[in-house]
C-alpha cells in the first residue's frame, strides 16, 4: 500500500488539488442548495429548517406558475430558433468562396461581445426614442410606417420575452453554427454525388443524407441550447424584468425579498426540469433518426 502510494506520488500530487477544489465545492454547493431550499425565511431571517413548505408555497403561487410558462416558452422558442439560425449560417459558410474567412469571423463576433453588453445594446435600440421605435413609427424616410404610436417594448410581455429570445439567439448562434459546421464538414462529398446519380434532388439529399448524418450534431445543439435556455438569466433579467422567468425569479427572491430558501427551491426544481427536458429530447431524437433512415 505504502509502496503504491510512493510510486504514484506524482499522480496524486498533480490530481489532488484540482479534485479537492472541484469536488469540495460540488459538495458544498449541493449541500447548501438542498439545505437552503428546506429552510423558510421571514424578513431575511431563517425560521424553520428541514421543511418542504418552500416547495409547496412555490407550486401554489401564481408567480412561479407564470415564470414556469414563460421559461417553457423561452426554451421552446429559442432552442429551435438557434438550431435553424445555426444550420443556415453553417451551411452558408460550408461552401468555399472568396472572403469566407472574413464572413466567418464576422459571424463569430457575437461570441466576442460580453452578454451584458449585448443586453445593453438591445436596451438602447429598443428603448423609447431608440432606433427601432423610430423605425417602426415611420420616422426614417427609407422605411414604411408600421405602427401609429411608439410602444414600450420592455413593458409588454410578449415583446419583452421576444426581445430576450432575440438577444439569446443573436448571442449564441455562433456556438450552434460551429457545432453544426463541424458536423457538416464530416459528411464526405461522395455521399451527395452517389445520391445524385440515384436521382436525389437537393431537398431529398438534405432530408435523407444531411439531416440523419447530422443527428449527433443536432442533438448536441438541442441539448446544450435547451439547457442554456432553461437556466437563462441575463437576457430576460435585463430585457424583461417585469415578466420574470425562473432564473429571474431566483434573483427576485434572493436579492429583492431576501429569501434564499425560495431561490434555492427554484434552483433545485430547475435542475430537475433540465434533467426531464434532456431525457425527453433524447427519446424524441432517437425516434426521429429511426424514422429518417427507413427503407
Amino acid at each position: 500500500m505504502l509502496k503504491n502510494l510512493k510510486k504514484n506520488s506524482f499522480l496524486i500530487w498533480s490530481l489532488a488539488p484540482a479534485c479537492i477544489f472541484i469536488i469540495g465545492f460540488f459538495v458544498i454547493i449541493a449541500f447548501f442548495l438542498l439545505k437552503l431550499s428546506l429552510t423558510t425565511y421571514v424578513g431575511g431571517m431563517p425560521q424553520e429548517t428541514g421543511v418542504i413548505s418552500n416547495y409547496i408555497t412555490l407550486i401554489n403561487s401564481s408567480a412561479f406558475k407564470d415564470a414556469f410558462w414563460r421559461t417553457l416558452i423561452f426554451v421552446l422558442t429559442s432552442t429551435p430558433l438557434q438550431l435553424i439560425t445555426g444550420l443556415i449560417t453553417a451551411m452558408l459558410i460550408n461552401k468555399s468562396f472568396h472572403g469566407r474567412g472574413v464572413v466567418r469571423s464576422v459571424l463569430l463576433l457575437p461570441l466576442a461581445i460580453p452578454t451584458i453588453v449585448t443586453t445593453s445594446i438591445l436596451v438602447l435600440m429598443f428603448s423609447k426614442g431608440g432606433h427601432i421605435g423610430s423605425l417602426l413609427t415611420g420616422q426614417y424616410s427609407f422605411f414604411p410606417q408600421v405602427m401609429a404610436k411608439e410602444i414600450s417594448f420592455m413593458n409588454n410581455e410578449a415583446f419583452a420575452i421576444g426581445l430576450a429570445i432575440f438577444g439569446k439567439v443573436w448571442r449564441d448562434t455562433p456556438i450552434s453554427m460551429l457545432i453544426l459546421l463541424a458536423g457538416l464538414q464530416q459528411i464526405p462529398q461522395d455521399q451527395y454525388e452517389a445520391a445524385e446519380t440515384m436521382g436525389s434532388k437537393l431537398v431529398q439529399s438534405f432530408t435523407y443524407i444531411t439531416l440523419p448524418l447530422m443527428i449527433p450534431s443536432i442533438a448536441s445543439v438541442l441539448v446544450l441550447r435547451s439547457v442554456e435556455a432553461w437556466k437563462e438569466f441575463i437576457f430576460p433579467y435585463i430585457l424583461a424584468p417585469s415578466f420574470p422567468v425562473l432564473g429571474v425569479l431566483i434573483e427576485n427572491f434572493y436579492v429583492q425579498q431576501l429569501n434564499p430558501g425560495m431561490s434555492a427551491a427554484i434552483g433545485i426544481m430547475l435542475i430537475f426540469l433540465i434533467l426531464i427536458c434532456t431525457w425527453v429530447l433524447k427519446v424524441v431524437l432517437e425516434a426521429a433518426s429511426k424514422f429518417l433512415v427507413k427503407v
Binding site: 431566483i250 434564499p260 435542475i271
Partner: peptide, 13 residues
C-alpha cells in the same frame, strides 16, 4: 449545476 442555481448557495456561503 446551472450557474443560476449554484449562485444562491455560493453567494450565501
Amino acid at each position: 449545476i446551472p450557474d443560476i442555481s449554484s449562485a444562491v448557495p455560493i453567494a450565501t456561503i
